[in-house]
Design a protein around this nucleic acid. Structure first.
Lengths: 338, 338
DNA sequence: TTGAAAGCGCTAACAC
DNA sequence: GTGTTAGCGCTTTCAA
């Protein structure tokens, strides 16, 4: 490995000067700088990032904790987060906790404040109190995708107005004339998605439509579960003309269940989800959904986390992410006349 | 931040002893060890991994380079790789190159041998010669998922016998009586999937069935592309009774296209893919495919990479991953009598 | 503008 | 068993 001082020797300067060339260029004479640059090039010098981190007291990596990256929602977030991190000179460490609080705590203990300067937390399986303790002792923690803007947590967070997302879905279905709507409520690695269903129900109620508890199912967060639940729902409540799912995975499963049952989507039954994952526009019929701007939220999260690292705050603060937006595709249509 | 020497002071020993307690426990007296442990606990000491990496001359993180994690195949690999890495005390840094060779080279330059002790490379957009140079100067590089076991690269790799996967698909379709099979050949972030299609064609040829070039389409690696290509294929060649796709994404797109066209799957047309991504068993009808044991390959890759780091070799070597296996689900069936 | 020197937190000989 | 010492490669005052 080529070190700073080898470069220094070749350029007939001292390590400090090489270091200066690498950072605040102004301070060094153009001629020496050129000599140093030449030496760096000849030797193929690359700074040792661990040494730099040790000397500077801060690393250049960020950690992203999530329960399980194989849920299709996460990769999109990770991609955008990694791009944003890279843009600002940071690396991204991915930490799957496998829905295991112990694993999460272990990660926090090992990397927060040493390998990683800050941690973006997406999963809810770690107790806020543990996170809080780690944030106090080790390094800033930012909660990405906080689902309850109305009740800020004791840590900084990016909040997404999921209740609004649910309401948008309701308005869309109402406009199309739907009254009998089944609910598929996800309870996955991000926790129970009740902000979404509550927002939906409130909007329906505002239109005079009372929620029917027998038309709602609370299920695990996957296509499979959505499929199975929709099957049950339609068996019990054949009069439903639309399904609202709190996330796209469930909605995609529901669409498939309906097709399997011989219902046309959207002619017989409409389906709407939330999130707008990539899959949503790739399935057929393409899914109508409420986009929560995953990539934008990811970028915002990274920016905010970096801000927190540079100028730590003592008060937790919440920033609201981009507002959810309805994306009308092919899985919703007017209620069928019967 | 609590340091080793603060712990040492509290325990009335020296830093070296604390360090010894943390690593080779035998060397230190049980009583002192207990005192040290107590001090560590009281102070909430956590080792600084950067300092350790610097002192030891090796870090505890591994890097995984891929072109774009939002392709559903990667998250499954990443999940398994991260678990394997964690099991052996390593962290995983995810590097998306966005199909950009320059980004890949930059990553390699910045982290190989400093932040990361080894790099698992999944994408083919970086020239092997660049990888080779980096492996020589910086840190071991392992090519995961090498698609051509018959021609080993100049770097260590885990090879997967994709030709065999193609052949298995062919045998399955042949057994079901299919003769007119359309080919969807992916050309995505992992490069042109020709080993798979060649394996398929060879197996068909061995059964006396010549490949018809007009029944094969080479397309980008996505559900969308599979959908569109299948539409075209069926328009041109309505007599096809089966579709073989070199990966599951394409196959899933194809199934949707067939359903949209009013063909029953598998009663009218059978569809088979390769990989067995999670989505494959979640769609309806569930996809018949050839599993390449993604998780097992990921674990093997991590183990091998760690081996390479510990005892570097000077000869590149190839190890063959688990053999592909046919997974029969609901998207294939006997050729329809006409 | 450049150099000398100290130190980041830890490990690893080697002595005692 | 435990302490002493010397780095690991870099940054950063502070002098010159």
């Amino acid at each position: 490995m080529v070190t700073l001082s080898e470069v220094a020797k070749l350029a007939h300067v001292t390590a400090a000067t090489v270091s200066n060339v690498l950072r605040n260029r102004e301070k060094v004479h153009p001629d020496t700088a050129a000599r140093v640059l030449k030496a760096i090039d000849e030797l193929g010098y690359r700074p040792n990032l661990n040494a730099r981190a040790l000397a500077e007291g801060r690393s250049s990596t960020l950690a992203l904790m999530l329960s399980n990256i194989s849920n299709p929602f996460y990769p999109e977030f990770v991609l955008a987060a990694e791009r944003a991190a890279r843009k600002s000179g940071h690396f991204l460490m991915v930490c799957n906790t496998d829905d295991n609080a112990e694993t999460g705590r272990a990660y926090l203990n090992q990397i927060a404040g040493t390998l990683a300067d800050g941690v973006l937390v997406m999963n809810t399986d770690i107790a806020i109190s543990d996170l809080y303790a780690s944030a106090m002792h080790n390094a800033p923690i930012l909660l990405a995708m906080w689902e309850h803007p109305e009740s800020p947590p004791t840590l900084p967070c990016i909040a997404v107005d999921f209740a609004r997302a649910g309401a948008l879905a309701a308005h869309h279905l109402l406009e199309l004339g739907h009254r009998d709507v089944g609910l598929l409520i996800g309870d996955g690695c991000g926790g129970l998605q009740d902000a979404r269903s509550n927002g939906f129900r409130a909007a329906m109620l505002a239109a005079g439509i009372e929620a029917d508890p027998t038309a709602a199912l609370q299920i695990r967060d996957s296509i499979d579960a959505g499929y199975a639940a929709c099957m049950r729902l339609m068996a019990n409540r054949p009069e439903l003309s639309a399904i609202f799912a709190t996330n796209d995975l469930l909605a995609i499963g529901a669409v498939q269940a309906l097709i399997t049952l011989g219902h046309a989507v959207p002619d017989d039954v409409s389906v709407i989800g939330i999130t707008d994952i990539q899959l949503a526009h790739q399935v057929h019929p393409a899914l109508t959904t409420v986009a929560i701007q995953t990539a934008a939220v990811a970028e915002l999260s990274i920016e905010r986390l970096i801000g927190l690292i540079q100028t730590p705050e003592h008060e937790p603060s919440m920033v609201l992410g981009p507002l959810p937006e309805l994306v009308v595709r092919a899985s919703t249509g007017p209620r069928r006349k019967r």
